[in-house]
Design a protein around this nucleic acid. Sequence first.
DNA 1: TTTTATCTTTGTACTCGTTATAAAATTAAT
DNA 2: ATTAATTTTATAACGAGTACAAAGATAAAA
Lengths: 138, 138
Amino acid sequence: MNNYLQTHRYLLQYSIKPSVQRTAVMDYLLKNRTHPTIDEIYSALSPSMPTLSKTTVYNTLNLFLEKGAVQQLVIDEKNARYDIDMSLHAHFICKQCGKVHDIFNLKPELFEKPENTGFSIQNVEISYSGICNSCKGN
Amino acid sequence: MNNYLQTHRYLLQYSIKPSVQRTAVMDYLLKNRTHPTIDEIYSALSPSMPTLSKTTVYNTLNLFLEKGAVQQLVIDEKNARYDIDMSLHAHFICKQCGKVHDIFNLKPELFEKPENTGFSIQNVEISYSGICNSCKGN
DNA sequence: TTTTATCTTTGTACTCGTTATAAAATTAAT
DNA sequence: ATTAATTTTATAACGAGTACAAAGATAAAA
């Protein structure tokens, strides 16, 4: 029922020293693949960790980023969003509700770094946008 | 020497009523293909238009967006950036200096909307990042 | 031309995401 | 047990963007 130890080990793989807070945040990310914002993470954990500070959530995610344990999505104009899934996939953001969804099974060519651009590309981000089905009903 | 009238006509094509401020902003965008931020536009125009307000620049670009005369790039975590080039192209952002560059001549397939994703995709944005050559020297 | 109505611009105040900072708390080292 | 180093926390500060209402400009009506 409690996979505190699993998450603990997961953090160590990225050479992140596991504190209670870091473990809780990583545990949340592993279980909630919704590309949450800082605020969503904080609001979700806060009830069961009343002393948790939002600054800690910021610090923690910046650390995870540095260590390569998560990626930051730059797709939402309002907030930064975080994704533990480091595999090749794209995202769809609904312009109405703001929810971000994964898009898997795209051709791997899409994620190739183009040649002869004059830039040494480190990272590729493919973002789609539109209105999601549940918002269309409204 | 002055293409005020050209820009004037350009705005009308997008059914934007051309005021002095709107014309100045559009003129700047047409001549500076650097994906400028609001602040960059304001700072550039402010000396020759001392009464210009930053709010007007915000209003103007939101109007241009609505009318489809520009696209907003969500690639820079810090600021929104604007691009009058509506053709199919991608962007590269330097993680160090933050400058955004165009990447043209990519395969058109990259910009196709994938099928059977469960979302009706309206827009495709391809963003590359890394360190640009002039920053590498430092 | 005047008057009136509509639209646009402007400045200020405000919101909100994020970072800076320094004190308190926890963990590790001696 | 003491001391040093790391982490967390709360508060303040910053900065991008928006809300709002007054002032200014443009268009329409008289």
